[in-house]
Design a protein around this nucleic acid. Sequence first.
DNA 1: GGGCCGCGATACCCGGCGGGTATCGTGGCG
DNA 2: CGCCACGATACCCGCCGGGTATCGCGGCCC
Lengths: 281, 281
Amino acid sequence: METRELRYFVAVAEELHFGRAAERLGIAQPPLSRAIQQLERRLGVTLLDRTNRTIALTEAGTVLLHEGRAALDAVEAADRRTRRAAAASGDPGIVLVTKAGASSELLPKLLDAYAAEPGAVTVDVLLCAPGEQERLLRDGRADVALLHRPFDSAAGFDTEELRTEEQVAVLPAGHPLTARAHLRLADVTALPGLPMPRWPGPDGTYPDGPGPRVHDHAQLLQLIALGRAAAVLPESSRARLPRDLATVPLLDAPKVTTVIAWPPHSRSLALAGLVRAATRL
Amino acid sequence: METRELRYFVAVAEELHFGRAAERLGIAQPPLSRAIQQLERRLGVTLLDRTNRTIALTEAGTVLLHEGRAALDAVEAADRRTRRAAAASGDPGIVLVTKAGASSELLPKLLDAYAAEPGAVTVDVLLCAPGEQERLLRDGRADVALLHRPFDSAAGFDTEELRTEEQVAVLPAGHPLTARAHLRLADVTALPGLPMPRWPGPDGTYPDGPGPRVHDHAQLLQLIALGRAAAVLPESSRARLPRDLATVPLLDAPKVTTVIAWPPHSRSLALAGLVRAATRL
DNA sequence: GGGCCGCGATACCCGGCGGGTATCGTGGCG
DNA sequence: CGCCACGATACCCGCCGGGTATCGCGGCCC
C-alpha cells in the first residue's frame, strides 16, 4: 500500500464526497475514483458503500481510516525528523510543545534546569491549542510534549509523571459563588447563565451544548471575564490569570497530572537529558 | 515520501550494499541507485556517505532508518487490520501473541475468563520467539500481547499490569548449586562451564559472549538439560519445566511483570472485553 | 411527473516515471 | 599492474497516474 493511496482514501473517507476530496487533494475527480477502486481491488476489500448518490464507510473502511491516519503520521514524522536531523546537524535542537497557557511555572523551571546541564542543546518551545500536542508529537513536528492528564491522552508515548495538582473553578470577579471557600463540580457545571465552554474534539468538531465554543486559553479567559462562561482549570494556572477573574478550590474535581511525553522509539541523547532534568525537578 | 521509497531506503540502509539490497527487493541495482538519489534530492538531505566502494549511513540516514521502519510497520498494520476487519466481519476474532513457553498458567485462565463473558469472540493464540511480540503487535499481525517486563519493552503500547513474580535460577538436575536453598544473581551468571545463553537482539544479531546462541524456549531448556547453560526465568515457568531441570530461588533478580499490551489507538470492543477480563483475574 | 442538477463511474489519451539492460569510472587488492 | 567489485550513468520501454469529455442515475424542484 502506497502513502499516496492512503492519503487519497483518508481524504475521501473524511469528506465522504469524491469531488470535495479531489479538490482538497489538488487532483481531478476521475483519477481519485479510480485510485480508490484500485485500492479496494488490491486489498480485496470493500471500503465504501456507494449508494449512487452518497457514500458511507464500511466497517473495514473505518478501520483503514483510523490505521491510515496513524500510518500517514508516522511517514510524515519520518520525513520531518530526517530533514531536521540533517538541517540541524551540529545543533540538533529539541522542539517541546505544550498547551498555550498551561504549565506556566513548571516550564521555565524545566528549561532552566535543563539549560544548566552539561551538553544541553537549544530547546524550541511550541505553544499550541489544546488537543493538538499529541498530533505534533506523532507527526514529527515536535520531539517532546508536556501533557495534562486526563485532558490529554498520552497513549502511544513514553511518559514520566512530573506533578499532580488539584483543580479550581474560575469565575468572573464578583460572582456570588466567589464568596464561598470551596465548591463542588456540580456547583459550577450547571450555573445558570454561566455555561461550561465547549472545546473542539480531536476531529475538529464541537460537541453539542449551550456553552460558547472556544479553541484556546486566551479566548476562554476573556469569555469568563465577560461573564459568559465558567471553567475548571488546574490550580497552577491561577498564577497567570488576569485580575478580573476569581478562583475557588474544588473539592471533587479530578486531579490533573502533568507528564512529559516523547515518541517511544526516540534515540536522542538530548531528549534523554531533558527528560532526566524534568524528573529531577 | 512514498512507502516504496522507504522500503528501498530501509533495504539499502540495512544491507549497506546496493547490489544485495536490490536482490532482496527483487529489482535491478540501477533503479535502486536512482531511487535513493531521488529520495535524497527530494528531502534535500544526504542519507548515505558514498566512498565509492562502500557506503555508510549519515546521521540523517540513521534517523530515517529508525523512523522509516516504524512508519512501514504502521502502513503494514493498516493493510493487515483492514483486510482482517473485512474478512472476519461477523466474527472479528482477536489475535493474541505471547512468548512461547511463558505465562503457561496465566494464559489459560485468561482465555477461560474471557470466553465466559457475554459477547466474547474467538481468540487466536500466536506463540512466537522472544522479542518478536512487539513487532507483531506493531505491524498488525496481532491485536494484543502478553509481555514480560523488563525483558520485553512495552514502549508505544497501552498496557495493564497483570502480575509480578520473582525469578528462579534454572540448572541441570544434580548440579551442586541445586542443593542450596537460594542463590544470588552473581552465583549463576558466571558459573564455570555453565554460561548464560545469548538471545538475539531486536536486529537479529547476537551479542558477544561465551554462551550458546538460542532463539526459543525449548532450545534453552534442552541446552540446560545437556549441562551446557544455565538460565534465569520467572518462577511461573517452573510448572512446565521438564523433570531433568532444577530450580533455585534467586534473592536479587529483578522481578518480572506480566502486562497485557495493545496498540494505543485500538477501537475494538472485543479487545476492550479481553483487557477487562484480564484485569479482573 | 418531467426535466434539471449533482455526483460518481467510465472511456480515452498523454506524459512521466519506474524498471530493465548495457556500460562506465574508480578504488582495492592480489 | 591489471582485474574485480561496486556504485553511477546512459538509454529505452511500457505502465500507470493524471487530465478532459461524457455517461448513468437518482433526488429534487417547479
